[in-house]
């Protein structure tokens, strides 16, 4: 039997012609810049945002995710890549105080955004209370999921405070409480294969109690 992998190309749109050189015709007007059209099939575009308080004006390959922008271009490597497909949570960062998976977001989608990564929460000399609680309760082992867990944990407590319900909230109308089950459900987008879950929940409870 003979096979080739060329069949991998997939959908309707593709038939339109994948080899055509792409000109960034729309760049100049959309970006409000004088970007020259590119004749090579590489497309760049500009974006500006701040990361941990520092502003960046970047010109990126349009394909670059926020995650790869942070790690490979800005060399802010605290944010981790576990799957690159939204399936693990290691890449969790805070964008305008909301947590997202930075692997499923283009850098270009963040024009004007305020981005906070694990490095922006605290440093070894000046730990964020959540970082300190993770250390105290041993809420990590290999440490690879940890930046994502901590960013999520910080966001989760804010989400509960803001009254956003969850799958396990008994009532949609009552204000959600910081229960063990609420924390666990809300943290479920952050996989820890080392299995530090039980300790993470304790770290979070402690921070929540101190905040209350």
């Amino acid at each position: 039997m003979e096979e080739t992998n060329e069949s991998t190309i997939s959908r309707r749109e593709m038939i339109v012609g994948t080899t055509a050189a792409i000109a960034a015709i729309t760049l100049a007007n959309v970006m409000g810049t004088q970007a020259a059209p590119h004749s090579v099939p590489l497309s760049l575009a500009k974006v500006s945002f701040t990361v941990n308080g520092q502003s960046h004006d970047l010109e990126m390959d349009t394909r670059t995710t926020l995650l790869d922008t942070l790690r490979e271009h800005l060399h802010v490597t605290g944010t981790k890549k576990g799957c690159d497909h939204g399936q693990c949570g290691a890449c969790t960062v805070l964008v305008n105080n909301q947590r997202i998976n930075s692997c499923l977001s283009l850098a270009l989608q963040h024009q004007g955004d305020t981005i906070t990564t694990i490095e922006g929460l605290g440093t070894p000399d000046k730990l964020h209370p959540m970082q300190a609680a993770f250390i105290k309760h041993d809420g990590y082992q290999c440490g690879y999921c940890t930046p994502g867990q901590i960013c999520s944990a910080v966001a989760v407590l804010n989400e509960i405070k803001a009254g956003i319900p969850s799958h396990v909230s008994a009532s949609l109308l009552d204000t959600p409480q910081v229960t063990n089950m609420e924390l666990r459900e809300r943290m479920s987008g952050n996989i820890c294969r080392c299995g530090a879950y039980s300790n993470i929940a304790e770290a979070m409870s402690e921070v929540a109690q101190k905040q209350a």
Binding site: I118, Y140, G143, Y144, T146, I150
Partner: peptide, 14 residues
């Protein structure tokens, strides 16, 4: 701990 929790522990790709 202070490295791992602040994103300053350096893994292979970093």
């Amino acid at each position: 701990g202070p490295l791992k929790t602040t994103g300053t522990a350096t893994y292979a790709y970093e």
